[in-house]
């Protein structure tokens, strides 16, 4: 076995995995706070990335453009929650899924309308340098992506575990009625949850598009891998999302390199097999908590 190829694939896998983890983190945030699986998460990320790209086209530096886009994504996330998600909060899963799918179609097509379906090049926030360790090549973007992911987790943990607003969010999610009674505005907390998720999604989009090119359908594939990551880690576990993301990224790369049948075409099959396999064998994933229902 060629060690260089192996290490290159693992490192490439970790870099993609960090992005899947980032988007999976967004999925987990929303699942935990509202019990919804957001099929539009990828499209929200794609849309935010277009905003960043549009700003760079207008001459804004990519770093600043990224920050603005992330901020806009946060606000848009809160707006989406309060406008179309809140009305279906108590509704059944089907209704909620259909609303996020409706959002999917709207964002995808508005982006296509506004920016065409042509692929655009998004500059990398971390430049285009490539470092070599022996024969193993690492891009600055890969390193940056992993660092950003770690920072995201640290920030999220700090926010949720150490800050007042984090306490309020956890309270709102754990027991909405009691939270209301102690003066926490549950609906505002859920808005913040959606905003944060949208912001994480935007980060994932901005980090992945220098490699994949930006076009309206770019995030759908990434979303599937992120589903796999979130499910593997446990849909309600932020740490699980990150670990899941990294595992999915590496597995995907190694499988398509070393298993002939998988190849390029069925690469997504690895993610799908993970989704099906984990849900059938251990539906709560590696880090998830079991669901306890009162009848």
């Amino acid at each position: 076995m060629d060690a260089t190829l192996f290490f290159n694939q693992v490192i490439g896998g970790l870099a993609s995995g960090a992005i899947y983890g980032s988007l999976a983190l967004a999925l987990v945030m929303i699942y935990r706070s509202t019990g919804i699986i957001n099929f539009a998460q990828g499209e929200m990320a794609m849309f935010s990335t277009y905003i960043a790209w549009q700003l760079t086209e207008w001459g804004v530096n990519i770093g600043l453009a990224a920050l603005i886009a992330i901020g806009v994504a946060f606000l848009a996330g809160t707006a989406i929650q309060s406008s179309i998600i809140r009305p279906v909060e108590g509704a059944d899963h089907l209704t909620q899924i259909m609303v996020t799918l409706g959002l999917f179609f709207i964002l995808n097509n508005v982006a296509g309308w506004q920016w065409t379906f042509q692929a655009q090049v998004v500059p990398s926030v971390f430049g285009d340098e490539i470092f070599a360790v022996g024969d193993v090549r690492i891009t600055a973007l890969s390193i940056g992506t992993v660092i950003v992911l770690i920072a995201e987790v640290a920030l999220l943990t700090l926010l949720l575990q150490k800050s007042r607003i984090g306490l309020a969010i956890r309270g709102a999610v754990d027991n909405a009625d009691s939270a209301e009674l102690v003066g926490i505005s549950v609906s505002r907390m859920l808005m913040v949850g959606w905003g944060l998720a949208a912001a994480f999604g935007a980060i994932a989009g901005i980090l992945v598009t220098p490699r994949l090119f930006l076009q309206p359908n770019v995030m759908f594939g990434v979303l599937i891998y992120s589903f796999a990551a979130a499910i593997l880690g446990g849909l309600d576990s932020p740490i699980g999302a990150i670990v899941g993301g990294l595992v999915v990224g590496v597995t995907e790369n190694l499988a398509s390199t070393y298993i002939d049948f998988v190849g390029g075409d069925l690469k997504i099959g690895v993610a799908l097999a993970l989704i099906v396999g984990v849900l059938l064998i251990k539906p709560n994933g590696l880090f998830g908590r079991g669901e306890v229902a009162r009848v």
Binding site: M98, G102, F104, F105, I106, N108, N109, V110
Partner: peptide
């Protein structure tokens, strides 16, 4: 694109 936007909006 209008088709998709309408479809999504009606759905929601």
């Amino acid at each position: 694109a209008l088709a998709g936007v309408l479809f999504g909006s009606i759905l929601i």
